[in-house]
Simulated scan of single mutants.
Amino acid sequence: MATSLEHRSAFTAPADAVYPTLVDEAFLTERLRSIGGKGAALLAYDRVGESVEFTLRQGVEASRLPGAVKAVLGGDLVVEREERWRSDGPRYAAVTRVSIAGTPAEIQGQARLGDHGEGSLLVVRAQVRVGVPLVGGRLEKVVVEQVGKLLAAEAEFAESWLAERA
């Protein structure tokens, strides 16, 4: 069984201004440096026209993890996140896959960025699966909560980045 995640991030800038930022190599590198956690790095980056693919590594020290997660991991949390973005008419879309090192956990999702009112809206929908008998469902809920916090922090960072460069 999987747990669903939906996260919405509103931006004051239109999608045509937000998209280039979200997939910019310098932005991604600085975002990772600022909020990516232990061992954060941009592992791969490839741009072809308006399509961009990248892989990020993010980390959380074991001391900052909830007890149930610590018990399963036995150490730091290391996450690898792949995103494949493309232009989809007046909107932008991504397919995302996240794996958590040393666990049978995976997140698969989609993101859509489009104009909304005077600004834009990024909607992320994903399925979180943790294949650990008996505690998998509880761990999925913890992962959903933590991913929601991360997405909110990333959106806040992007909004500040855009405002500084407006």
Rank of each mutant, 00 (worst) to 15 (best):
residue 1 M to E: 11
residue 3 T to S: 15
residue 9 S to L: 01
residue 12 T to C: 12
residue 14 P to N: 15
residue 15 A to D: 14
residue 17 A to Y: 11
residue 19 Y to Q: 14
residue 19 Y to L: 09
residue 21 T to V: 14
residue 25 E to V: 00
residue 25 E to F: 02
residue 29 T to M: 04
residue 31 R to D: 01
residue 32 L to K: 03
residue 37 G to P: 03
residue 41 A to T: 06
residue 41 A to V: 02
residue 41 A to P: 07
residue 43 L to D: 07
residue 44 A to E: 12
residue 46 D to M: 12
residue 51 S to W: 00
residue 53 E to C: 13
residue 54 F to I: 10
residue 55 T to Q: 10
residue 55 T to M: 10
residue 60 V to K: 06
residue 64 R to Q: 07
residue 64 R to E: 04
residue 66 P to G: 11
residue 68 A to C: 02
residue 81 R to Q: 10
residue 83 E to Q: 14
residue 86 R to K: 14
residue 90 P to D: 15
residue 90 P to K: 15
residue 95 V to D: 13
residue 98 V to F: 02
residue 105 A to M: 07
residue 108 Q to C: 15
residue 114 G to T: 06
residue 116 H to M: 12
residue 123 V to H: 08
residue 123 V to C: 13
residue 123 V to I: 15
residue 127 Q to F: 09
residue 127 Q to P: 13
residue 128 V to E: 04
residue 129 R to C: 07
residue 129 R to H: 09
residue 131 G to H: 01
residue 135 V to N: 05
residue 136 G to S: 06
residue 137 G to N: 01
residue 138 R to N: 08
residue 138 R to T: 05
residue 140 E to A: 11
residue 141 K to V: 12
residue 147 V to W: 01
residue 148 G to S: 06
residue 151 L to V: 00
residue 152 A to V: 00
residue 160 S to Q: 15
residue 160 S to V: 11
residue 162 L to A: 08
